[in-house]
Design a binder for these strands. Structure first.
Length: 808
DNA sequence: GGCCTGCCGCCC
DNA sequence: GGCGGCAGGCCT
């Protein structure tokens, strides 16, 4: 047995990718394993911190003349991370320029992240001054936080500490406690009942009642809560009953099942179309052959991708294997979840952001203990502790929400591909509008290309009509509604059918502008205008959360001619109510869906036809399936097109194609109306025709000409600081060292101020590196990562983002 | 000379 | 984050 353990330590703001060596105390020699969490002393102050055991060493393996400290204790009886998780963390840290500790933490449920508390304890009470005594208020131990103390008190406390009159205690708190329930098995039988009864005092009525109760439940196991409370009040009474041999006691883990209340009707596999059958067969063969083969399943909306997913999952389960399915957070709500639950019942574990930390931990435990064989979840579910994976599915694989925006900045799709290699299992990347990178790999044969070209019900794709707003605005009854669209809406309402209206939120919110002097109300902390929120009657900043009252007079010129400009969902709703006073309108945006479960409730309401029009932002475009919706209107197709992001065409195309697919999914045919100021733009034209293939080749050509992915790799460096000068200085310094390490083939854009220079009183500059092959770059960026930690003290932050999903 | 303060490097 | 070390400044 090794004497020493390698530990990745969790020290806030001081992160290394180097493990530290600790001595294993004899009492832990036999039980310590890789992947366990431990508590170790760190630094001069012997501060206690959490760490992960990632390896072992013997004395010969290191020749260093430093004092080796001992592990204090373990936090786990069994490893919380398997070997796969540890290997994956190494790979992630390397690929995403992240600290290993952040990768390890990302794989565990939140509750396993240590929380630290600091306490002061009195050793020599006689040395304390009156002020310090007041601080302790008669207690021997007090929790404290430097920031909350006056400098005078702090100085005094520091002095007392030097004199050993006080000591600081660091504590690591583990919040991961499985909820336990006491299970009782009755050992009282008809045979021994009389005998046991004789042993009880005649006047002990409670005991006799209990015995009678147990005789009724003979041999059964039940929770303690099912025992009438008047029979057994305390745990010691229970234990006594166990001693007498009346019952057997057991502690069992209780799970908080967030879906427990809902009864789901079980569904059977549906009959497949020829195309679906080809897809299911291809993936099933790869499952049987244990091939780590990725498939691109490209199918128009309504072509039955989900049924392909479900049947391949069933195939994996039949082989005794498990399955992992990722869906975008937004569509993780009602319908997709229902369909998976309906097929696989209690074998399904759900992981999504609406779960409480406790619920999430319970689901994680169910997976780890192999009680759940099918895992469905959003981005972070990609780390679910599933073993023996048979197939992994990524639905709507082009969704940008699969990319994590903070450390570790991973793309779930890439993690999936890694895990598939590890488990030797196939991957299905499903989408109607695959990311260009994905489709390009299918072109090259890296992914196998499966196509679903027909809608299941044989319906034609919806008719799409473009409205050129440059013309239409002249006769439009309201600036956001053309005559054509309004007429179409009225027609549906008359037929008692439903309508979905979408507006692009980006650049589409209400702000306040003074018509006298042109003053625009801006956030005091960020370089953005404040957005009007009618529900709270206030002006809000979407970046830092700043909130203030709606001005009655212009703060600049004191004119009363200050009014709302632009269009938010709220304003559109108000317009719509004026145009169609009898229509029932449901608004769905960030504001109306903030509360837990609100998203679900709104959709259920719309599904039950309690509203005629669903008005919302991007979130309504995804995965919804309402048979009675026969008209989809897009109010502003092009607001995203003008953004300085090379992906804006791709985004617009995807969004329009997706939302168009929402119309007429069942027996009724659908109509789509798209209002735009750029009717001739290729992304809009081709989205109208639902022509992904032409869009793909056209866009690929542009990417090739402009040196963008998938022809080039990109890395974005963002530098932020408290002053603009500091941010600029640091970013130019980085640019200089980059020039030294890069080959002439690489392209560096910038440094330039970010599109929003100031957010929350920090200034942002950015650099973009475009390259094909740069052997020295990865090493340089890892050095930059370690270096950037020093800068953090001076308030300079550097963020390295490989393959960023947006350039803003 | 003594001691407070700010900055820097290191922590198994 | 926290601690010791070290350099520079000002007090008595």
């Amino acid at each position: 047995m090794a004497e020493y353990a390698q530990v990745i330590v969790d020290v806030p703001t001081m992160q290394t990718n180097r493990p530290y060596t600790y001595k294993i105390p004899t009492k832990l020699q036999s039980q310590l394993e890789c992947g366990m969490r431990v508590i170790v002393p760190f630094g001069k102050g012997e501060r206690k911190i959490q760490g992960f055991v990632v390896g072992f060493a013997t004395k010969e393996e290191f020749v260093e003349n430093i004092e080796i400290k001992e592990i204090i204790s373990t936090m786990d009886l069994a490893p919380v991370l398997a070997k796969e998780g540890l290997l994956l963390a190494d790979w992630l840290a390397q690929k995403t320029f992240s600290f290993k500790i952040s990768c390890l933490q990302a794989m565990l449920p939140n509750v396993m992240r240590a929380s630290y508390t600091k306490k002061l304890r009195v050793l020599s009470p006689e040395l304390l001054s009156d002020e310090v005594k007041l601080f302790f208020a008669g207690q021997a131990e007090v929790e404290f936080n430097e920031e909350q103390l006056s400098t005078k008190l702090l100085r005094e406390l520091t002095l007392l500490r030097k004199k050993d009159a006080l000591e600081v205690i660091y504590q690591v708190n583990d919040r991961a406690k499985p909820k336990m329930v006491m299970m009782i098995t009755s050992l009282v039988t008809r045979e021994n009942y009389e005998m046991l009864k004789k042993q009880v005092r005649k006047n002990a009525t409670r005991q006799l009642e209990l015995l009678a109760f147990l005789a009724q439940k003979s041999g059964q196991t039940f929770a303690r809560s099912e025992l009438p409370t008047n029979l057994v009040q305390t745990l010691s009474q229970l234990k006594k009953a166990a001693e007498l041999g009346w019952i057997k006691l057991e502690e069992k883990e209780a799970y908080r099942d967030p879906y427990a209340t809902k009864e789901v009707q079980k569904t059977q596999p549906q009959k497949l179309t020829a195309e679906q059958q080809v897809a299911v067969d291809a993936v099933s063969q790869a499952i049987d052959a244990k091939q780590a083969q990725p498939f691109l399943l490209q199918g128009v909306t309504g072509s039955g991708k989900t049924e392909v997913y479900l049947q391949t999952i069933a195939h994996a389960l039949k082989n005794g294997q498990t399955a992992l399915m990722l869906v975008p957070e937004i569509s993780l709500t009602p319908q997709m979840v229902q369909r998976v639950k309906a097929r696989f019942g209690s074998q399904v574990a759900m992981l999504h952001s609406a779960l409480s930390d406790g619920e999430r931990y319970d689901e994680w435990r169910r997976i780890e203990r192999k009680e759940a064989k099918v895992v469905v979840g959003a981005r972070s579910a990609v780390f679910a502790p599933v073993s023996d994976l048979g197939v992994i599915i990524v639905d709507e694989e082009h969704e940008t929400s699969y990319k994590q925006e903070d450390m570790p900045r991973y793309h779930a799709r890439n993690v999936v591909l890694w895990r598939a290699k590890y488990h030797h299992c196939p991957v299905i990347l499903g989408s109607a509008t695959p990311a260009l990178e994905t489709r390009a790999r299918a072109q090259k044969g890296v992914y196998r290309h499966l196509k679903l070209t027909k809608r299941i019900n044989g319906n034609a794709l919806p008719q799409v009509e473009l409205v050129d707003m440059r013309q239409a605005i002249r006769t439009a009854p309201r600036p956001d509604f053309s005559e054509v669209l309004l007429a179409q809406i009225k027609e549906r309402l008359a037929r008692n059918e439903q309508v979905v209206l979408m507006l692009n939120r980006r650049g589409y919110s209400s702000f306040v502008l003074c018509r006298e002097c042109g003053f625009v109300l801006k956030c005091p902390n960020c370089d953005v205008s404040l957005t009007l929120h009618m529900d709270t009657h206030s002006m809000k900043c979407h970046y830092c959360g700043h909130e203030e009252a709606i001005p009655q007079r212009c703060p600049s010129c004191n004119s009363k001619k200050i009014q709302y400009y632009g269009t938010g969902t709220q304003k559109v709703q108000a317009e719509l109510e004026k145009l169609l006073p009898n229509a029932r309108i449901l608004r769905m945006d960030v504001d109306t869906t903030r509360k837990k479960g609100a998203h679900e409730r709104l959709l259920a309401k719309f599904g039950a036809h309690e509203a005629d029009i669903l008005l919302g932002t991007q979130m309504i475009a995804k995965g919804l399936d309402f048979p009675n919706v026969t008209l989809v209107g897009v109010l502003n197709a092009d607001t995203a097109l003008g953004l300085p992001d090379y992906r804006s065409s791709e985004r617009t195309f995807q969004l329009l194609t997706q939302v168009s697919g929402r119309a007429g999914r069942a027996d009724k045919s659908g109509q789509v109306v798209i209002q735009t100021y750029n009717p001739e733009h290729y992304a809009i034209q081709l989205a109208c025709k639902q022509d992904y293939e032409r869009f793909f080749f056209y866009e690929m050509n542009l990417r090739h000409l402009n040196h963008y992915p998938p022809y080039y790799y990109t890395i974005r460096l963002t530098v932020s600081a408290k002053t603009e000068a500091a941010a600029a200085k640091e970013s130019f310094a980085i640019k200089k060292s980059l020039d030294q390490c890069l080959s002439p083939e690489a392209i560096v854009l910038g440094p330039t101020p970010s599109s929003i220079l100031r957010i929350n009183n920090r200034f942002y500059y950015q650099l973009v590196i475009k390259y094909k092959s740069e052997p020295a770059l990865e090493t340089y960026l890892h050095e930059l990562l370690l270096q950037s930690q020093q800068g953090e003290r001076k308030g300079i932050q550097v963020v390295i983002d490989r393959d960023p999903v947006n350039f803003l």
